[in-house]
């Protein structure tokens, strides 16, 4: 028997990493502030026709082919969102925070001498990084900058919880985590988790926007951020699109996890609480996809299933790690 200091921790990198987390949180907070001003006081402006935007009759003419007469049947109005210059700045600030997050994760990995998602703190930070990455992607690809004010709220809450309660110094891992399936499995879970998070947040926005629409139809006036959200259909499409990305990844993550479990514990599926809850989340998201294909379930009902799905992901992460004992509780 021998006793070793398994891998020396690089102290410079470790402290750089810790500083970066704080800087990143401050940066996101500033971006959130700017996004919130845009959401509340921006001007409702038309969005260009695009991947997730409805191609309204007015939206496609002009420019390249002026002699083409287009007729599109859609009941949906033009896509509009509250916009202002501050939103662009906020996006830049968010991108800066994202880079800090990236640097933080890299320095932490270097400090510990291993891939940097091996405990709850690292997991939360990585999932938030993915969520912000998804926000940036959606902003550029789908003009969905309007998600910013909403996505950064849970990101900041989770980062706060991470720093305050989950923090551990960088260090090596327990032997059960010495498998290349772990980074694969955990990476898939993190990517899916981040996308589920943004999807869930978009779902909440959808529910608000949908209520605004219902209220307006009844002649009520809706002011403030709720009154300035984009049309529910657009939000629904974004949140669905993110599930299309996340659900197969989650599925893959569960499979990778069971391959690892097979190597480490001698069974690929053992109904350990963590496995049970991953399975529950998976079934809920499958139900969401079904609900969207089932008459009478599309719209708010399906979206509630989506929100429930993210709630189970969070539950799995926080409650299962702390409340239940199981092989996965390396918290």
């Amino acid at each position: 028997m021998t006793y070793t200091l398994a891998a020396p921790v690089n102290e410079t990198m470790a402290s750089a990493s810790d500083t970066l987390v704080i800087a990143m949180i401050v940066t996101y907070a500033a971006a959130l502030f700017l996004f919130a001003i845009e959401a509340a006081y921006g001007r409702r402006t038309k969005l260009k026709a695009g991947r997730l935007m409805p191609v309204g009759a007015g939206a496609v003419d002009g420019g390249f082919a002026d002699d083409i007469e287009v007729n599109v049947r859609t009941t949906e109005g033009e896509a509009k969102a509250s916009q202002s210059v501050l939103g662009r700045i906020a996006l830049g600030v968010t991108a800066l925070g994202f880079l800090m997050g990236l640097a933080q994760i890299i320095t932490r990995g270097v400090a510990a001498g291993r891939w940097p998602w091996g405990n709850m703190f690292e997991f939360v930070v990585a999932m938030c990084l993915v969520a912000v990455g998804v926000l940036l992607f959606a902003s550029f690809r789908y003009q969905a900058r309007f998600l910013g004010a909403f996505v950064l709220v849970p990101v900041l809450i989770l980062l706060g919880i991470g720093v305050k309660w989950l923090y551990v110094d960088p260090g090596p891992l327990i032997p059960a985590l010495h498998s290349y399936w772990v980074p694969i499995h955990v990476t898939a879970a993190i990517l899916a988790g981040g996308a589920f998070m943004v999807s869930g947040v978009t779902g909440v926005m959808y529910l608000i926007s949908h209520r605004t629409e219902v209220k307006r139809a009844q002649g009520e006036e809706v002011v403030g951020i709720a009154g300035r959200l984009p049309a529910p259909e657009l939000l629904d499409r974004i949140s669905h699109r993110l599930i299309l990305f996340a659900f197969p990844l989650w599925t893959f993550g569960i499979i990778a996890g069971s391959i690892w479990a097979d190597e480490a514990w001698g069974r690929f599926w053992g109904w350990d609480p963590k496995e049970v809850w991953s399975f529950i989340s998976w079934v809920i998201y499958a139900a969401y996809l079904h609900a969207r294909a089932t008459g009478g379930w599309r719209g708010p009902k399906a979206t509630w299933i989506n929100v429930l799905g993210f709630a189970t992901i969070l539950f799995n992460f926080f409650a299962v790690n702390y409340m239940f004992s199981g092989l996965h509780s390396y918290a």
Partner: peptide, 8 residues
């Protein structure tokens, strides 16, 4: 093998 030093 076990880690000998530090808080781990």
């Amino acid at each position: 093998t076990f880690i000998e030093d530090g808080n781990l």
